[in-house]
Design a protein around this nucleic acid. Sequence first.
DNA 1: AAGTGGTCTAGACCACAAA
DNA 2: TTGTGGTCTAGACCACTTG
Lengths: 228, 228
Amino acid sequence: MQGSIGWQSVREEALRRIRNRDWPPGERIPDEAALAAELGCARATVNRALRDLADSGLLERRRRGGTRVPLVPVRKATFSISIIRHDIEARGQQPGYRLLRDTLAKAPDKIATAFDASATEKLRHVQALHLADGAPFCLEDRWLRPSIAGPDLSFETLSPNEWLVRNVPFAQGGFSFLAVPADAQTAGHLECAEGSALLALDRTTFGPSMITAVRLTYAPGFRIEAQL
Amino acid sequence: MQGSIGWQSVREEALRRIRNRDWPPGERIPDEAALAAELGCARATVNRALRDLADSGLLERRRRGGTRVPLVPVRKATFSISIIRHDIEARGQQPGYRLLRDTLAKAPDKIATAFDASATEKLRHVQALHLADGAPFCLEDRWLRPSIAGPDLSFETLSPNEWLVRNVPFAQGGFSFLAVPADAQTAGHLECAEGSALLALDRTTFGPSMITAVRLTYAPGFRIEAQL
DNA sequence: AAGTGGTCTAGACCACAAA
DNA sequence: TTGTGGTCTAGACCACTTG
């Protein structure tokens, strides 16, 4: 190795050796000190490079056990979630928005349980449609703890999605993707046939206690894409 | 800050200040040298912590521009993709496998184009069913370049998924999630109603040239889950 | 022009797990 | 026990980009 220094160069060289089977799957590779000597850089630089590869699942590292090329690599993919309007703009389309419903209502058991809400407590239930170039893009069906977003906060022009991202950021949560058949109401809003297979994203957000639960149901044809 | 040292402690302290609005969205935070002095550690340690938060989308960093709490945080989630059998085992279920089809055939245009295959070239077409506790879990529908997996390689007992992960690792590729209605054949294999909404994962893998394209169609109820 | 993050270095100590 | 990665430190230079 003689190319320009830098931990990224070290990573690329290591990646080359992995793909090239110079370092076969299951085998230990030279330790950091040896690589540093061979490549003419500090051990910390090698460490940074190998740690990065390990984070990507292309290497396994263990104290005292050394670094190995895994027999079965676990590739990791990442995708970003933020403001729906930005996603639409990123597709080169004109975003639109329409509030469909904004009421206080008793949530279904599943939701109420997640909120740890009492049997009679009402939650704010908001439904809104996001549009791309005027066509339905995504149906937002959200339950909100009223103490987070009081009645004086209107979602007429600003979607709950965007308000929350801007005002209740940095919270914890979980999410899951699933496929759902379009029910009559959803089919109407998304202008598709009832029973259509739709991609949905369920998401919960909580700080000290539950803040919001939302299902985003996307119009037919929508894909979540990523690179390996 | 007096807790045990370590870059993770610095990250937690920074995270606390972000969530606590000590560092409000849009504002610049103290530079690395200042934080290092305040927290009583080296600048490199602060750097490691803040870089980690920036990688998660919780901070924005720019040379000369300083570090800021973003107005609209972009949360990043990661999920792993590897061997289907392992996923089933991780759910605490007994994995099973059945080969349904293994032929040489002309691929549909969309696939053939991805392979850059000539009009008459045939590709290996494999269909297999993955089972969890004996029930259908996932239908694997794969096209393979024959030069990668010759006819002497049988997929009777080893799924193409697993063979590829073990023998053609470290390749590049892309993938996407989508929802599809179950066609008659898929419904039969997955033992669900025709037209059911199913989660599918399309994936392409290529090295110097296209290696394989696969669609994994999951049984009803399957979810991809992740934490924020 | 100058301030800030990005990175490298050389050395050190520690934690962990394999031998 | 001992070798390996994990991390910290103090100092240095550089790259970018903002004012």
